[in-house]
């Protein structure tokens, strides 16, 4: 039952994907400089300033020296551009007793990201394929259960997972964290692939069956080559999701040496010791946000499609 509801939600969330590419449907403005037009552009411009401001503040703060920050205006562009804060954030920023910078967190996140993304996309694509073309008794029940799981607050499942990983000897290791990411990325990605494969014409599947192709042959030789766009969407969801994760990183890594970038960033900026270096902090923050930002600006409409589908993850 809940399955239907969730599907309805996805459906509503998926319409945008194609609809966004259509032309606007609103009433047509009469003249270019009409009063209502000025109000519309004025409002949009002011709101856009509010949304753009934090990115701007991050950039300018990270390029200033500390003396300039102490006397100056947070919104003013740097009088003297310096890249020292970036170098310091990357190489020397301290978390506790470690002072080797955010680069450590970056590489940790990278090591977590690559296997998590590959594994979760691989598993989700096969699951989605099995769920849409090779149903068996009970397959929908498991799928429904998985989708309900996506709505349960993670905190409810954290401790049992700690126990499971400890029993398996994986608690505190990167492997354990990778498995957690794979498990929690499964609902949304499986849904994505399931809906995509369900939209592929049935004749194609039947023809392949008649020709004697089995489960894996059809998957690798027919379905995979024609579903590259949906793989890109899944990749975008997973890369941004895993890179931005904080909760699992802080729960399933045992030592500061293993912290992913978000956790290390938070520890650097919110550390209570020493003098606050706002320029270094902002450089570190920007460095951590860089990966998802690059993906966002590079992928354009596919990102929209990804979050429209990812919306269910909430």
């Amino acid at each position: 039952m809940a399955d239907v509801g969730i599907l309805a939600a996805t459906k509503a969330a998926e319409q945008p994907v194609t609809a966004l590419l259509d032309s606007p449907r609103g009433p047509k403005p009469v003249r270019r400089f009409s009063r209502s037009n000025i109000i519309i552009y004025g409002t949009l411009f002011v709101v856009a300033l509010y949304y753009a401001l934090p990115l701007y503040v991050m950039i300018v703060t990270s390029l200033k020296g500390m003396p300039e920050i102490r006397v100056g205006n947070i919104f003013a562009p740097p009088l003297e551009v310096t890249f020292q804060p970036w170098v310091k954030a990357w190489q020397e920023a301290c978390t506790g007793i470690n002072c080797d910078g955010l680069s450590r967190g970056f590489w940790n996140s990278f090591q977590i990201l690559i296997p998590s993304v590959i594994l979760s996309v691989a598993i989700a694509s096969v699951n989605g394929y099995a769920l849409s073309m090779w149903k068996f008794r009970g397959s929908e029940v498991f799928f429904t259960l998985l989708m309900i799981g996506a709505f349960i607050p993670y905190q409810v499942m954290l401790y049992p997972i700690v126990i499971m990983l400890r029993e398996a000897g994986l608690y505190g290791s990167l492997t354990g964290l990778v498995l957690v990411h794979v498990a929690f990325g499964m609902p949304i990605n499986t849904l994505l692939f399931r809906n995509y494969f369900a939209s592929i014409p049935e004749e194609l599947f039947k023809a392949a069956r008649v020709d004697g192709a089995g489960f894996w042959a059809i998957f690798f030789r027919i379905m995979l080559p024609m579903s590259l766009p949906i793989f890109v969407v899944a990749l975008i969801i997973q890369v941004t999701g895993i890179w931005n994760d904080f909760l699992f990183g802080v729960t399933f890594t045992s030592s500061p040496e293993r912290y992913p970038m978000t956790v290390q960033l938070n520890n650097i900026v919110n550390s209570v010791q020493g003098v606050k270096e706002y320029n270094v902090n902002m450089a570190a923050t920007l460095l951590t946000g860089l990966v998802p930002l690059v993906i966002y600006f590079a992928s354009g409409k596919l990102f929209v499609r990804g979050i429209a589908a990812g919306a269910v993850k909430g």
């Binding site: 401001l53 503040v57 904080f246 930002l293 966002y296 600006f297």
Partner: peptide
């Protein structure tokens, strides 16, 4: 412009606004 913040993590969001 309206959507890019959604690509950023809550950690980044929180730290930027803490500074502003």
């Amino acid at each position: 412009i309206f959507l890019y913040p959604f690509a950023l993590s809550f950690i980044v969001t929180g730290l930027v606004w803490q500074w502003i």
